[in-house]
């Protein structure tokens, strides 16, 4: 029981049960859909970028608790952030998930529940998917809508 209590930390379960940005209706300027090749799950990330800032962020899709919670944390983390900061802001959680985070833990504290995922390599991709899909979305000028 301990190991999964480890994987599904309280904070992560909170995000899973009450996800931020899930199915929110926003004025989409950028969007992308990402798939987890291992399980076929899909997630769509929708963004409103205006005046060089992430003004609104939403996601939808039928995905596991890890992916959903990670997406919810992403919505919390990136909301209202300037595009110029995005690359930096994304690096911390993504490195944490992959077990490649080396800097002081301080700035990563709010993602500590993602840090355990590196111990479960089969679930790593579930946690990475929302962030990767966000990157595709903001690079996805062609798919601009709204």
């Amino acid at each position: 029981m301990n190991t999964t209590a480890g994987l599904y930390q309280k904070v992560l379960l909170e995000h899973h049960k009450n996800p931020l940005g899930f199915h929110n209706k926003i004025a989409i300027t950028h969007s992308a859909t990402g798939a987890n090749v291992v399980c076929g799950d899909e997630i769509t990330v929708e963004v409103n970028i205006t005046a060089g800032k992430v003004q609104e962020l939403a996601f939808l899709g039928d995905s596991c608790a890890i992916c959903r919670a990670s997406a919810s944390m992403m919505c919390q983390h990136l909301l209202h952030q300037p595009l110029s900061q995005i690359a930096n802001l994304i690096k911390v959680p993504m490195d944490l998930i992959k077990g490649e985070y080396t800097a002081a833990v301080n700035s990563a504290e709010c993602f500590s529940s993602l840090a355990v995922i590196k111990q479960y390599p089969v679930r790593m991709q579930c946690a990475l998917l929302p962030w990767q899909t966000f990157i595709s979305a903001i690079n996805n000028k062609n798919e601009q809508r709204g």
């Binding site: 190991t3 999964t4 399980c39 596991c64 890890i66 679930r123």
Partner: peptide
């Protein structure tokens, strides 16, 4: 989600297929 079920079952030493 099936994957969450399989992970939880795994922590109780129960092996099932999910996917």
């Amino acid at each position: 989600h099936a994957h969450d079920v399989a992970s939880l079952l795994d922590s109780e030493n129960i092996a099932v297929r999910a996917g």
